[in-house]
Simulated scan of single mutants.
Amino acid sequence: MNDAPRKPRIALMGEFSAGKSTLANLLLEQDSSPVQVTATQLPPVWYSLGPGTVERELADGSTAPLPLDDWSAADPASTAMIRARIEADLLYAFDLVDMPGTCDPCMTSDVWSNVLAQVDMVIWCTPANQAWRQSEAALWEQVRPELWTRSLLLVTRMDKMQSAPDRRRVLARVRLEAGEMFRDVLPIALTGAIAGRDDADVLEQTGAAALVRFLETALDEGACAPPLPPAPVCEPAPVPVAAPVPEPVPDAAGRVVPRRIQRSGEGRRERPQAGVG
């Protein structure tokens, strides 16, 4: 039996064309996905560390292999998930799940709830030109609350904003409207980050470096660690019962006194006299 703790699991989510798969390519150091992703082309893709094998999990629970460079046979109607086991630096630290767009008609509520029940953190991608729409907020409000304190809202396509004031204005609005529902809100220009992934200055300017720092901090602090198992249910400790108060008994003179008071002179302490220092 393997008792080793599992790795954290991070899901990439958001509406169609928000940049999720481009973000996955950046994090996994790939240039492109095996297929040109469209709204209905792929089911969830679960990336984990491995030797370079891919298989699809069918709706009946069975599996079938897929070519490493062509996933077009993974029809969402019959495929519950694609499992890709590949080599990437970040996969030593966590598993990554690239979800279909939330408006994808093939992503039923069962797909949504099944994956969310298994992940420890979400990076929600929202494009700057239509950032944090009401439809996104309505879906995120259905997520279990502990994910809010772990997850990141990533404002993508920041390079499509015409000016620096526009970028600041969008970011300020999103932080105001959604900041309380996420651990942090960060901007990123994914296309520029992929093009300059080997240039530290470019990664800093595009926001990719800040994203990596966020992930490192979250992992170091255990913010996206798997939840601990529930504590065992313990029986409540018994309430102590007070000892019964002794019944008073009469002394030799017939006076009733409590048992705890000694009437003999033995062991009695003399009362100090007034004025004695």
Rank of each mutant, 00 (worst) to 15 (best):
V45P: 04
L96A: 01
E87Q: 13
L215T: 05
P238V: 06
C224D: 15
L211M: 07
T102C: 11
P43C: 03
D95R: 05
A195M: 15
V170S: 08
L153W: 00
L154R: 02
P8S: 11
G179S: 07
P165W: 10
T156F: 07
E146W: 15
W148D: 05
A117V: 09
T126I: 14
A4Y: 13
D120R: 03
R157T: 02
E247K: 03
M99D: 04
F182W: 02
T63H: 08
S264W: 08
F16A: 04
I10F: 06
L90S: 09
V122D: 00
L176F: 09
R168Y: 10
V54L: 01
Q30F: 14
E146Q: 14
R167W: 13
A77K: 01
R175G: 09
D166G: 11
S48N: 01
E29N: 13
D70G: 02
G254M: 01
L116V: 08
L49Q: 12
E221A: 10
D198G: 13
I188K: 07
T191F: 12
D159Q: 02
M121K: 00
A225V: 02
D3N: 14
E29T: 12
A231C: 00
A39S: 11
D70F: 03
S109F: 05
L12R: 01
A137M: 10
A137E: 13
D199W: 07
V37Q: 04
L66I: 09
L90V: 15
R175M: 12
V143Q: 07
V256Y: 15
R255C: 04
P229N: 12
A218S: 14
L26I: 03
L96E: 06
L49H: 08
P236H: 06
L171A: 07
L152V: 01
R56Y: 07
E57R: 14
A59I: 15
A200Q: 09
Q118G: 05
E204Q: 08
L190A: 01
M81F: 13
A18E: 08
V233C: 06
A64D: 10
A172K: 14
V170C: 12
P43L: 04
P100C: 01
L66D: 09
C125E: 01
D60E: 15
E87F: 02
M99E: 04
P127N: 00
V115A: 06
G14N: 04
D199A: 11
D251I: 05
T191L: 15
V170Y: 09
Y47Q: 00
L27E: 05
V249N: 10
P244K: 02
R271C: 05
G61I: 08
Q205F: 13
V170F: 12
I123A: 00
V115H: 08
V257H: 10
Q162F: 14
I261K: 15
